[in-house]
Design a protein around this nucleic acid. Sequence first.
DNA 1: ATCCGCCAGGGAAATGTTCCTATGGCGCGT
DNA 2: ACGCGCCATAGGAACATTTCCCTGGCGGAT
Lengths: 219, 219
Amino acid sequence: MPIRVMLADDHAVVRAGHRFLLDQENDIIIVAEADDSDSAYHQYLTHAPDVLVLDLSLPGAGGLAVIRRIVTRDPEAKILVFTMHDEVLYAKRALEAGARGYLTKDADPDLLPEAIRQVARGKNYMADAIARQLVAQYTQGDDNPLALLTQREFEIFCLAAEGLSVQEIAANLHISYKTAANYMTRIKQKLDLNTLGELVRLAFLHGVVGKPASVGKAE
Amino acid sequence: MPIRVMLADDHAVVRAGHRFLLDQENDIIIVAEADDSDSAYHQYLTHAPDVLVLDLSLPGAGGLAVIRRIVTRDPEAKILVFTMHDEVLYAKRALEAGARGYLTKDADPDLLPEAIRQVARGKNYMADAIARQLVAQYTQGDDNPLALLTQREFEIFCLAAEGLSVQEIAANLHISYKTAANYMTRIKQKLDLNTLGELVRLAFLHGVVGKPASVGKAE
DNA sequence: ATCCGCCAGGGAAATGTTCCTATGGCGCGT
DNA sequence: ACGCGCCATAGGAACATTTCCCTGGCGGAT
C-alpha cells in the first residue's frame, strides 16, 4: 500500500512541482495540500497522512509552530521539512520541534521520494550537508547566541531580520502589537543588542536570512 | 501555434511545478530548461524560445546578469521574471536590465500563463503590488537608490548599516543627536524604508557593508 | 543679488520601546 | 495532586525615539 503524503507549502508552484515529481513514484500518493499554517494543521488532523512534507516558511503562525502543534497532537507524526533555508539553525530547531527529516530545495530532487520512504518507515532523514554541520555544532558546544532564544523568540527574530516592522510581525503571527514589541525587547536583551540594525547584522552574519544570490552585486 | 517557453530556475521542484502547471495550457509548450546562469544563456541562444521564464536567484552569474547578456544579444528577447523576492528593488533592476514582466512566487499560479501570453504578445506584465510600488517609488530614480543620498546622508547611512545607534552616529560625526535623528528620518524617506532593519538589509544587498565569511555559515 | 540645495539643529506631537505586572497553559519533580 | 518554573500572551505607564516643521548659515549656480 502506498505512502500517503500531505504537502504544505505556500507556493503553489512548489506544490505542483512536488505533485509532478511524486506522481511518478508509484508507492507514493498525495492526499492533501495546504498553503498556510492553520490549514496545514487542520488538514493534517483530518487526513492523517503517513508523511507531511512541510515548508518552514509558511505564512501564518510559521512552519515551526505547525510542527509543534501537530507533534503535540500526534507525537507519532512523521514530518519531513523541505525548505529554502540551508541554515543549520533552522534544521536544528525543526528537529527539536519534532520533525523527522530535513531537506533543502537545493537538494537533488531524487532525494525527496527516498526521504519520504525513510521517514514513512520510521527512520530519520537528513541532508548530508546539514547532518554534518549539526554534529559539528553539537560537538563544539553552543557558542551560537541564537540558541538562547526560545522557539517563538527565534521566529520573531527571523521576521525582524527580514526587515519587517513590529506591527507587521504582530500581524504575521496573529499576536498583539504589544506582544511582538515585548518579544523584540526581550530578544535584544538576550542577544545583547542595542539596535534593530545590530539584530539584522547578526542575522546576516549567521546566515539566518537568505542572502538573495547575486542580485545587487558586481558591475 | 503554441508559445515556446523556456524555464530557468535552480530548483528542480520549481521547474517541475511550472512544467506541471503549464502543461495544462494547450497554447504553451516548454522547449528548454536551465538551472544556472551559463546554461540559461546558451540554452536561450540555441532554442530561441518565445518567452524565457527566469528566476532571479540563479546560481552562477546571477539572474540579472543573464538578462543583460541575453538582451544584449537579442534586444527583442521576452523575459519574464518569476522570483521569490517581492522587493521592489529587484523588480526595478530586472526591468531596467530588460525584463518584460515580473511575478513573485506568492502570486496566484493562474497568473503565470496569462503573464506568459501577455509577454509573448509583446506587452509587459507586472504583478499589481509591485507595479504600484514601482511607480509610487522610483519614478525617475537612479539605478542605485543610494545615489539619491547626499554625501552626508550616505555617511550616516553607512554607520547605521554597521549597526550603530543614532547617538553613536551623532558622537561619531560630532553632530547633535537631533541632527543625526533627522538625517535618519530623511534617509528612510528617500529610500522608502520603514524600519532600520530594511535599511541594514538594503546595505547588505548592495554590498555596502562587507560580510565577514566563516561565522558559522555553510559550505 | 538671489535662489537653491546641503548641513546643522530646536521644539512639539506622534510613535515606539521598555519595564512591570498578570494571566493561563504545560511539563516536571515529589 | 500540588507547587514551581518557563513560556506565550498582553495591558499600562514611563520613558525614549522618530517625525514633522521651521530657522539659519554657507557655497555654488544664474
